[in-house]
Amino acid sequence: MAVRVMVRRRKGEVFLAGKVIVLTSGKGGVGKTTSAAAIAAGLALRGHRTVVIDFDVGLRNLDLIMGCERRVVFDFINVINGDAKLNQALIKDKRNDLLYIFPTSQTRDKDALKRDGVERVLEELKESFDYIVCDSPAGIEHGALTAMYFADSAIIVTNPEVSSVRDSDRIIGLLASKSRRAEFNLEPVAVHLLLSRYSPERVRKGEMLAVEDVKEILSIPLLGVIPESESVLKASNTGTPVVFDEESPAGRAYLDAVARFLGEQRELRFLQPERRSLFRALFGRA
């Protein structure tokens, strides 16, 4: 149920501190939690020790998306308050040994996210994980601000529509002014754009903003484009991060995004309307 051993990793004399990645958007319903689960699982699949934390106190969902809702005993807030130890609250993923889930409380609210407590927990996590993926709540209030405050990198999850793009723009501004890195004049938070629920067909009809439009408005590097896909919904409902579905275009797009995050060059895929093969047209749905 809980994790037994936390390994303090050292390589020679150099202490390896984990990186904090926040997935944030401002707007709700754009796919933050789905993306946090997929990116975290993708990083684990690439061999990195990764933990994904749910910052959406009171609206806990990450455990469902990760399929571990029946294994939650202690949560993030318990650990912040010192009521539980970190390794009592961390849940090890059943599909990947390097992946851990850190659920939050459903009964508390965002005020329970005390900044010094969050900092202490993150510092402790940095000692044993390569990546700490923070799933931010929507909005720009305390919960979202706390989730972004300690970030080293941010992945801005955006849908190709004007309201989502504007909210993302606001969040990018906040990252540049309200993060710890901004306050202490450190190197700024590395900001990446992840365009989710992209439908090339609807872009073609002019119902959605195209990749280039969004890039032009937000002017931050593009990490990936996730095509709108039924496999995402299926993955959510079955509690399996979509990257574990090798057939899914969305899953492959997330793996591409993870590869780019790790510094690899990958061509953008799934930007053209899918051409149905004759076989598929005859025998079923794409």
């Binding site: 504007r166 909210d167 723009d169 606001r170 990018i172 501004g173 906040l174 540049a176 002014s177 002017s219």
Partner: peptide, 8 residues
């Protein structure tokens, strides 16, 4: 010299 973001 930086983009002036929404809300700024």
């Amino acid at each position: 010299t930086q983009p002036v973001r929404s809300g700024t």
